[in-house]
Nucleic acid binder design. Structure first.
Length: 258
DNA sequence: ATGGTAGGGGGCCTA
Protein backbone atom coordinates (compact mmCIF):
# COMPACT_ATOMS: atom_id res chain seq x y z
CA UNK A 1 0.00 0.00 0.00
CA UNK A 2 1.45 3.35 -1.13
CA UNK A 3 0.63 6.48 0.85
CA UNK A 4 1.64 10.08 0.20
CA UNK A 5 1.53 13.45 1.91
CA UNK A 6 1.24 16.51 -0.33
CA UNK A 7 0.90 20.16 0.67
CA UNK A 8 -0.89 21.31 -2.47
CA UNK A 9 -1.14 25.03 -1.60
CA UNK A 10 -4.71 25.59 -2.77
CA UNK A 11 -6.84 22.70 -4.03
CA UNK A 12 -8.73 24.81 -6.56
CA UNK A 13 -5.62 26.46 -8.01
CA UNK A 14 -3.99 23.02 -8.13
CA UNK A 15 -6.77 21.05 -9.85
CA UNK A 16 -4.67 20.24 -12.90
CA UNK A 17 -1.62 19.20 -10.88
CA UNK A 18 -3.70 17.14 -8.46
CA UNK A 19 -5.56 15.29 -11.22
CA UNK A 20 -2.36 14.55 -13.10
CA UNK A 21 -0.67 13.38 -9.91
CA UNK A 22 -3.51 11.02 -8.96
CA UNK A 23 -3.58 9.59 -12.48
CA UNK A 24 0.16 9.00 -12.77
CA UNK A 25 1.29 8.29 -9.20
CA UNK A 26 -1.92 6.64 -7.99
CA UNK A 27 -1.59 6.73 -4.20
CA UNK A 28 -3.74 4.28 -2.24
CA UNK A 29 -3.99 6.94 0.46
CA UNK A 30 -3.06 10.62 0.37
CA UNK A 31 -3.22 13.40 2.93
CA UNK A 32 -3.40 16.94 1.59
CA UNK A 33 -2.57 20.18 3.35
CA UNK A 34 -3.32 23.84 2.67
CA UNK A 35 -6.42 23.06 0.64
CA UNK A 36 -7.46 26.68 1.32
CA UNK A 37 -11.11 25.84 0.78
CA UNK A 38 -14.27 25.41 2.81
CA UNK A 39 -15.68 21.88 2.63
CA UNK A 40 -18.66 22.96 0.47
CA UNK A 41 -16.34 24.41 -2.19
CA UNK A 42 -13.89 21.50 -2.32
CA UNK A 43 -13.73 20.05 -5.87
CA UNK A 44 -14.86 16.62 -4.74
CA UNK A 45 -15.41 15.27 -8.25
CA UNK A 46 -11.72 15.68 -8.99
CA UNK A 47 -11.06 13.04 -6.33
CA UNK A 48 -14.19 10.90 -6.36
CA UNK A 49 -14.32 10.47 -10.14
CA UNK A 50 -10.97 8.71 -9.81
CA UNK A 51 -12.38 6.18 -7.39
CA UNK A 52 -11.33 7.69 -4.08
CA UNK A 53 -13.19 8.16 -0.84
CA UNK A 54 -12.68 11.67 0.51
CA UNK A 55 -12.91 13.40 3.88
CA UNK A 56 -12.14 17.10 4.25
CA UNK A 57 -11.59 19.53 7.09
CA UNK A 58 -11.47 22.97 5.54
CA UNK A 59 -11.85 26.60 6.46
CA UNK A 60 -12.15 29.86 4.62
CA UNK A 61 -9.07 31.37 3.06
CA UNK A 62 -6.20 29.37 4.43
CA UNK A 63 -5.15 26.12 6.15
CA UNK A 64 -7.40 23.10 5.55
CA UNK A 65 -6.57 19.39 5.32
CA UNK A 66 -8.06 16.37 3.57
CA UNK A 67 -7.61 12.62 3.36
CA UNK A 68 -8.42 10.47 0.36
CA UNK A 69 -8.29 6.72 0.05
CA UNK A 70 -9.17 3.93 -2.36
CA UNK A 71 -10.43 1.95 0.64
CA UNK A 72 -13.30 3.39 2.69
CA UNK A 73 -12.43 5.80 5.49
CA UNK A 74 -13.81 5.03 8.95
CA UNK A 75 -13.96 6.76 12.34
CA UNK A 76 -12.98 10.20 10.99
CA UNK A 77 -11.82 12.82 13.52
CA UNK A 78 -11.51 16.48 12.56
CA UNK A 79 -9.37 18.90 14.54
CA UNK A 80 -6.47 18.22 16.91
CA UNK A 81 -7.78 17.39 20.39
CA UNK A 82 -6.69 19.43 23.38
CA UNK A 83 -8.03 22.95 22.76
CA UNK A 84 -11.73 23.49 22.09
CA UNK A 85 -11.05 27.17 21.27
CA UNK A 86 -8.69 26.32 18.37
CA UNK A 87 -10.62 27.06 15.16
CA UNK A 88 -7.80 26.48 12.66
CA UNK A 89 -8.37 23.48 10.36
CA UNK A 90 -5.06 21.68 10.57
CA UNK A 91 -5.73 18.07 11.49
CA UNK A 92 -7.74 15.02 10.36
CA UNK A 93 -7.59 11.33 11.28
CA UNK A 94 -9.18 8.23 9.81
CA UNK A 95 -8.92 4.45 9.74
CA UNK A 96 -8.05 3.00 6.33
CA UNK A 97 -10.55 0.32 5.30
CA UNK A 98 -10.06 -2.84 7.38
CA UNK A 99 -6.26 -2.62 7.34
CA UNK A 100 -6.03 -1.63 11.00
CA UNK A 101 -3.95 1.40 10.01
CA UNK A 102 -4.93 4.84 11.32
CA UNK A 103 -3.63 7.81 9.31
CA UNK A 104 -3.35 11.32 10.78
CA UNK A 105 -2.98 14.20 8.33
CA UNK A 106 -1.57 17.38 9.82
CA UNK A 107 -0.62 20.90 8.88
CA UNK A 108 1.54 22.13 11.74
CA UNK A 109 1.57 25.91 12.31
CA UNK A 110 4.40 27.80 10.61
CA UNK A 111 5.14 29.83 13.74
CA UNK A 112 6.77 32.89 12.20
CA UNK A 113 7.54 35.46 13.35
CA UNK A 114 9.36 34.04 16.35
CA UNK A 115 9.22 34.90 19.15
CA UNK A 116 5.58 35.97 19.35
CA UNK A 117 2.03 34.64 19.65
CA UNK A 118 2.28 32.65 16.42
CA UNK A 119 5.34 30.84 17.72
CA UNK A 120 3.63 30.18 21.05
CA UNK A 121 0.73 28.67 19.09
CA UNK A 122 3.12 26.44 17.15
CA UNK A 123 4.77 25.09 20.30
CA UNK A 124 1.45 24.51 22.09
CA UNK A 125 0.12 22.77 18.97
CA UNK A 126 3.16 20.47 18.99
CA UNK A 127 2.52 19.64 22.63
CA UNK A 128 -1.08 18.74 21.78
CA UNK A 129 0.19 16.58 18.92
CA UNK A 130 2.53 14.81 21.36
CA UNK A 131 -0.40 14.10 23.68
CA UNK A 132 -2.53 12.81 20.81
CA UNK A 133 0.31 10.60 19.59
CA UNK A 134 0.76 9.17 23.09
CA UNK A 135 -2.94 8.30 23.23
CA UNK A 136 -2.87 6.54 19.85
CA UNK A 137 0.43 4.74 20.51
CA UNK A 138 -1.09 3.42 23.75
CA UNK A 139 -3.71 1.62 21.63
CA UNK A 140 -0.85 -0.46 20.16
CA UNK A 141 -2.24 -0.07 16.65
CA UNK A 142 -0.26 0.98 13.57
CA UNK A 143 -0.54 4.78 13.27
CA UNK A 144 1.05 7.12 10.73
CA UNK A 145 1.30 10.88 11.27
CA UNK A 146 1.88 12.57 7.93
CA UNK A 147 1.94 16.12 6.74
CA UNK A 148 3.61 19.48 6.63
CA UNK A 149 5.31 19.70 10.03
CA UNK A 150 6.92 23.08 9.30
CA UNK A 151 10.00 21.72 11.11
CA UNK A 152 13.48 21.21 9.64
CA UNK A 153 14.67 18.40 11.92
CA UNK A 154 18.44 18.63 11.33
CA UNK A 155 20.97 20.85 9.49
CA UNK A 156 21.29 18.21 6.75
CA UNK A 157 17.57 18.78 6.02
CA UNK A 158 18.31 22.23 4.56
CA UNK A 159 20.51 23.31 1.66
CA UNK A 160 21.47 26.45 3.61
CA UNK A 161 20.86 25.73 7.30
CA UNK A 162 22.44 29.02 8.36
CA UNK A 163 19.72 30.92 6.50
CA UNK A 164 17.12 29.29 8.79
CA UNK A 165 18.80 29.74 12.20
CA UNK A 166 16.35 32.43 13.35
CA UNK A 167 13.33 30.93 11.61
CA UNK A 168 10.47 29.22 13.47
CA UNK A 169 11.00 26.14 11.25
CA UNK A 170 14.52 25.58 12.60
CA UNK A 171 14.67 27.18 16.06
CA UNK A 172 15.98 24.87 18.79
CA UNK A 173 12.59 24.70 20.53
CA UNK A 174 10.89 23.59 17.29
CA UNK A 175 13.49 20.91 16.67
CA UNK A 176 13.35 19.78 20.29
CA UNK A 177 9.58 19.37 20.09
CA UNK A 178 9.98 17.30 16.92
CA UNK A 179 12.67 15.20 18.58
CA UNK A 180 10.31 14.65 21.51
CA UNK A 181 7.90 12.95 19.08
CA UNK A 182 10.72 10.67 18.00
CA UNK A 183 11.92 9.84 21.50
CA UNK A 184 8.41 8.83 22.53
CA UNK A 185 8.57 6.11 19.87
CA UNK A 186 7.70 7.61 16.49
CA UNK A 187 10.04 6.92 13.57
CA UNK A 188 10.93 9.45 10.85
CA UNK A 189 10.24 7.12 7.93
CA UNK A 190 12.52 8.84 5.44
CA UNK A 191 15.49 8.64 7.77
CA UNK A 192 14.87 4.93 8.40
CA UNK A 193 15.67 4.33 4.72
CA UNK A 194 17.74 7.34 3.59
CA UNK A 195 20.48 8.80 5.82
CA UNK A 196 21.92 10.95 3.03
CA UNK A 197 21.66 14.77 3.04
CA UNK A 198 20.09 16.84 0.27
CA UNK A 199 16.57 15.38 0.41
CA UNK A 200 14.02 18.20 0.35
CA UNK A 201 10.23 18.49 0.14
CA UNK A 202 9.83 22.29 -0.18
CA UNK A 203 11.41 24.95 -2.34
CA UNK A 204 10.23 28.57 -2.07
CA UNK A 205 8.65 30.12 -5.15
CA UNK A 206 10.99 33.09 -4.70
CA UNK A 207 14.58 33.80 -5.68
CA UNK A 208 14.93 30.75 -7.93
CA UNK A 209 14.99 28.37 -4.99
CA UNK A 210 13.93 25.34 -7.04
CA UNK A 211 16.52 25.64 -9.87
CA UNK A 212 19.19 26.29 -7.24
CA UNK A 213 17.92 23.29 -5.22
CA UNK A 214 17.72 25.62 -2.23
CA UNK A 215 15.25 23.40 -0.42
CA UNK A 216 14.25 22.16 3.02
CA UNK A 217 12.71 18.92 4.30
CA UNK A 218 9.60 19.80 6.30
CA UNK A 219 7.04 17.23 5.09
CA UNK A 220 7.35 14.06 7.13
CA UNK A 221 5.93 10.65 7.93
CA UNK A 222 6.22 9.72 11.60
CA UNK A 223 5.34 6.05 12.19
CA UNK A 224 4.31 4.27 15.36
CA UNK A 225 6.29 1.08 16.10
CA UNK A 226 3.64 -1.17 14.58
CA UNK A 227 3.46 1.02 11.44
CA UNK A 228 7.25 1.20 11.19
CA UNK A 229 7.31 -2.63 11.26
CA UNK A 230 5.33 -2.53 8.00
CA UNK A 231 7.54 0.07 6.26
CA UNK A 232 9.03 -1.28 3.04
CA UNK A 233 10.08 2.00 1.39
CA UNK A 234 10.01 5.79 1.71
CA UNK A 235 10.87 8.40 -0.91
CA UNK A 236 10.34 11.98 -2.07
CA UNK A 237 8.73 12.43 -5.49
CA UNK A 238 10.35 15.58 -6.85
CA UNK A 239 8.80 15.65 -10.36
CA UNK A 240 5.53 17.46 -9.44
CA UNK A 241 7.55 20.43 -8.16
CA UNK A 242 8.65 21.02 -11.77
CA UNK A 243 5.25 20.71 -13.43
CA UNK A 244 3.41 23.76 -14.70
CA UNK A 245 1.83 25.89 -11.92
CA UNK A 246 3.25 23.69 -9.15
CA UNK A 247 2.79 23.72 -5.40
CA UNK A 248 5.88 24.89 -3.51
CA UNK A 249 5.90 21.44 -1.83
CA UNK A 250 6.28 18.01 -3.41
CA UNK A 251 4.85 14.63 -2.33
CA UNK A 252 6.56 12.41 0.25
CA UNK A 253 5.73 8.70 0.11
CA UNK A 254 5.76 5.60 2.26
CA UNK A 255 5.05 2.05 1.20
CA UNK A 256 3.61 -0.16 3.92
CA UNK A 257 3.14 -3.92 3.76
CA UNK A 258 -0.58 -4.69 3.63
C1' DA B 1 18.91 45.37 3.68
C1' DT B 2 15.67 44.49 0.52
C1' DG B 3 12.65 42.06 -2.26
C1' DG B 4 11.78 38.37 -4.55
C1' DT B 5 6.38 34.65 -5.60
C1' DA B 6 1.90 32.56 -4.81
C1' DG B 7 -3.27 31.75 -3.26
C1' DG B 8 -7.37 33.48 -1.55
C1' DG B 9 -10.49 36.91 -0.87
C1' DG B 10 -11.84 41.28 -1.43
C1' DG B 11 -9.01 45.75 -0.99
C1' DC B 12 -4.37 42.49 3.11
C1' DC B 13 -2.99 38.23 5.30
C1' DT B 14 -0.42 33.98 5.37
C1' DA B 15 3.29 31.54 3.86
Amino acid sequence: MKLATFNINGVKARAEVLGRWLDTSAPDVAVLQEIKSVDEAFPRALIEDRGYHLETHGQKGFNGVAILSKLPLHDVTRGLPGDESDEQARYIEADIGETGLRVCGLYLPNGNPAPGPKYDYKLSWMERLRARAAALIAREIPVAFAGDYNVIPQPEDAARPDAWREDALFLPQSRAAFRRLETMGLYDALRLRHPEPGLYSFWDYQAGARPKNDGIRIDHWLLSPKAADRLTDCWIETAPRDWEKPSDHTPVWVELAA
